Simulated assay, not measured.
Amino acid sequence: MFMQALATCGRLRLTDPDPNWVMEKMPMPRAMGDMLLLPNGNVVIINGVGAGTAGWERGREPVLTPVIFRPSETVNRFSVMAPAARPRLYHSSAVLLKDGRVLVGGSNPHVFYNFTGVEYPTDLSLEAFSPPYLAPEFNPVRPTIRYVTNNNVLGFRVFCYVTFSVADFVSASDVSIRIMAPSFTTHSFGQNQRMVVLKLRGVTYLGGEAYYATVVGPSTAEIAPAGYYMLFVVHKGVPSSGWWVQVM
C-alpha cells in the first residue's frame, strides 16, 4: 500500500520580521522531488514519485514531468514541461550546469545496486533538462559574457565590470547580473544553493553588439560566503552561459 504524495509546496521569506509559510499547489503530487534555482530566478521541480515516500523500495508512480515555478508571477506560477524518459526515484540528483541546463542522474531505490528483475532497476545514466529559456527563439536576446574585470574576482562592495554582447538589446532595465553558488543535491536537498543579484550601477554601450555592466560585489560574507560562483547576465529573462568567478 503506497499513499498518494501531496501536491502542496511551501515557501518562506526568512527575512520577514514574522515569517510564515505560504502554501502553493503544484500541478501534480510529488515526493522525493529535487528543486533547483535557475539563473533567471525561476525554480525547476524535477524527479520523484507520485506515491509512497523516500526510502528503500518505498516509492511508486514515478513523476516524469518537470515543473517550472515562477515566484515573480502572481497567477499561473507553474508550468508543466515535457516528460523525461527515465524514472528518477530514490537517490536521484540534479545540478545546474554552466550552460543553463540541468544535469539529472541516478536512481537507486534498492539497498544494493539491482539492474534486473525489479520494477525500477538501478539507473546510473545521466540526462540534461533544457529549461524554456534555452529555446532557439530566445537567441536574439540571449547575452554572451565576453570579459569580467579584476581577474574574475568579486570583492565585497568592490566595483566590477562585466562585458557582454547581445544581438537584440532592449534596455538596461531588462538586465541583471547574478551569481549562483554550485550546489550538490541528494535526498531532495539542493545543498549550498544560493543566488545573489548584484547591485547594477549601469549598462554602457560599447558599439556593435557589445555592452558592459557596472556592478558592485556582494555586501557581506553572510550574503555571499567566499568561494566560487557562476556569474550570469540575464537579459529579458534569458540568461547567458555562466562564467566562473571567485568571491573573496
Rank of each mutant, 00 (worst) to 15 (best):
M1W: 12
F2T: 06
M3P: 06
Q4M: 13
Q4K: 15
Q4S: 11
A5M: 09
C9I: 06
C9P: 02
L12A: 02
T15L: 12
P17N: 11
V22N: 03
V22M: 02
K25I: 13
M26C: 10
M26Y: 04
P27K: 12
M28P: 00
R30N: 12
A31M: 15
G33S: 11
D34F: 00
L36T: 01
L38D: 02
L38E: 01
G41S: 00
V44G: 05
V44W: 03
I45K: 02
I46T: 05
G48D: 10
A51G: 10
G52Y: 06
T53W: 14
E57G: 00
E57Q: 11
R58G: 07
G59V: 07
P62E: 10
P62F: 11
L64I: 01
P66L: 08
P66R: 09
V67L: 12
V67W: 14
V67T: 15
I68R: 00
E73D: 12
E73M: 12
E73T: 03
T74N: 14
N76C: 06
N76S: 13
N76Y: 11
R77W: 14
S79H: 06
S79R: 06
V80G: 07
A82C: 07
P83K: 03
R86S: 11
R86F: 07
R88V: 06
R88C: 09
A94W: 10
V95H: 05
L96P: 00
L96K: 08
D99W: 04
G100I: 06
G100K: 04
V102L: 09
V104L: 14
P109F: 02
P109Q: 10
P109S: 01
H110A: 03
H110V: 00
F115Y: 15
V118M: 07
E119P: 00
E119G: 02
Y120M: 11
T122E: 08
L124F: 04
E127H: 04
A128M: 09
S130K: 13
Y133A: 04
Y133M: 08
P136K: 02
E137K: 15
E137D: 10
P140W: 14
R142T: 04
P143C: 09
V148K: 07
V148F: 07
V148Q: 07
N152V: 07
N152S: 15
N152P: 11
R157E: 13
V162K: 06
F164H: 05
F164L: 03
A167I: 07
S171F: 11
S171H: 13
S173Y: 11
D174A: 14
V175A: 02
V175D: 00
S176Y: 06
S183P: 09
T185A: 06
T186K: 13
G190K: 06
G190E: 07
Q193F: 12
Q193D: 13
Q193P: 09
R194N: 14
M195F: 02
M195A: 03
V196Y: 01
L198T: 08
L200K: 03
L200W: 03
R201I: 03
V203Y: 12
T204A: 02
Y205D: 12
L206C: 05
G208D: 04
A210N: 12
Y211L: 04
A221H: 05
P225M: 10
P225C: 09
A226V: 07
G227A: 10
Y228P: 00
F232C: 01
V233D: 06
K236W: 08
P239F: 04
G242T: 13
